[in-house]
Nucleic acid binder design. Structure first.
Lengths: 241, 241
DNA sequence: TAGTGGTCTAGACCACTAC
DNA sequence: TAGTGGTCTAGACCACTAT
């Protein structure tokens, strides 16, 4: 029974062997692997085959590449475990994991919402919304890419406060006296688009944990629809039921 | 500013162009793409370059391969949206999405738990547990791979009932008179191991939505620790807070 | 400047599919 | 049997890194 499981090409066999070596502790975090040329000689094969094996090891996050320098054993720079509650904020979660949160506003615009956003936020026709694209960091590592929509009339001049900041909910509470509460969250696993991969500084195959949430306030009703994509290799999120 | 975003190799440019064609509706679901040889001629490049482009399109699930036959436009066979609640069962969720649930028991064993399982289930030392590996289907499509542990003394002869079945919780309710309630769920995004990819019949880069849950019963306490990996391309899960 | 990985060409043989 | 993708070899030129 030749199992499909093992995709038993030479390249995958080499990947397995090197994976075992890494997990067996032959290398330390940050160590350089032998060069492609050396691995070719060791395994009596072509560079193409070695590169296929290295691709697999990159995919499973065991190694990473520095152009012109070599392949290196990856370390796990962060391991963020996060319990989601109605009032959770990104910044609090990062702090409680022992890191320094920050955020970068990539884009802000005032626009007419898509049908999906309009329906989600229970908006009347032609009501404008703010749309922000935010990149969120833990220490200096980009951890999540966030797209978020808020009704414009509920937050006059919000764009002025959205410069550099660490907590959107902090701004909402302080400037507009609302108490944001998460209502639902929808989880999915995806891979990044080219632009998301670029912002998050990850390869195109790193899995992302996507969380869409609807946020409401007791007085103002639904005040935010937000979609965040977290690096799956660094984050996990717990939901209490 | 040459953006890193576009990884602007010829292969990625070709991938983008073909992606635009597919999303523009030039092909229908199930259509065959031109062969590698034809694409080589069209884009004036080598087969290697075309294969790099095809790899990208496979990764983002736009196309799939049939050995010896060609590249085909993928259809999305399922789109399961699932709201998680304390009493949710896999089988109910599949049914409510309009599909027929089934399950295959891949392995069953009686064993001593790992430290993690022992602590999670609040077990005394040397208390045995059942460990099951279950593959879950919607219609005929493998949708999730599931590993689950239950205290052995709470469910005598459980292994006898675990043959072919569609609902584990159905068995627990009927045979042991318990009311399983989910307490927490932890979400993460991962990629499959080789064996998981094989069981789920997916490429090694399909993202998986991993959900770990602790399940309790009012009388018996913590009765199950379960880890499921859902095909990220087919499922999304909503949690009410 | 020497060595590394990134990209690409040209060609080969194989396993599998469709006819 | 002809055509397809899967795997692999051999070799080239480039951009980047280390020194």
């Amino acid at each position: 029974m030749k199992s499909k499981q093992k995709n038993s090409s030479l390249a995958m066999l080499i990947a397995d062997e090197i994976q075992n070596e890494i997990e067996g502790g032959i290398y330390s975090e940050g160590d350089r692997l032998p060069s492609e040329a050396l691995l070719c000689r060791r395994f009596y094969c072509n560079r193409y085959t070695i590169r296929q094996a290295m691709d697999r090891l990159k995919n499973i996050q065991l190694i990473h590449v520095k152009q012109g320098a070599g392949y290196f054993i990856s370390e796990r720079p962060l391991d963020v475990r996060y319990t989601i509650t109605p009032s959770t904020r990104f910044s609090k979660m990062i702090e409680s994991a022992g890191h320094v949160p920050s955020a970068l506003v990539i884009s802000k615009e005032l626009c007419l919402p898509s049908k999906k956003v309009q329906e989600t936020l229970h908006l009347p026709k032609n009501r404008e919304v703010f749309r922000f694209e935010i990149l969120r960091f833990a220490d200096k590592t980009p951890l999540a890419w966030n797209e978020t929509w808020l009704p414009a009339n509920a937050f006059p001049e919000l764009e002025k406060y959205m410069t550099s900041f660490s907590s959107l909910y902090g701004i909402l509470q302080k400037q507009y006296d609302v108490e944001p509460q998460r209502m639902f969250s929808t989880f999915a696993a995806t891979i990044p688009s080219t632009s998301e991969a670029s912002y998050l500084q990850i390869p195109l195959i790193t899995p992302l944990l996507q969380i869409e949430s609807i946020v409401s306030d007791e007085k103002k009703g639904r005040i935010e629809y937000t979609k965040a994509k977290y690096r799956g290799d660094l984050c996990q999120v717990t939901s209490t039921l």
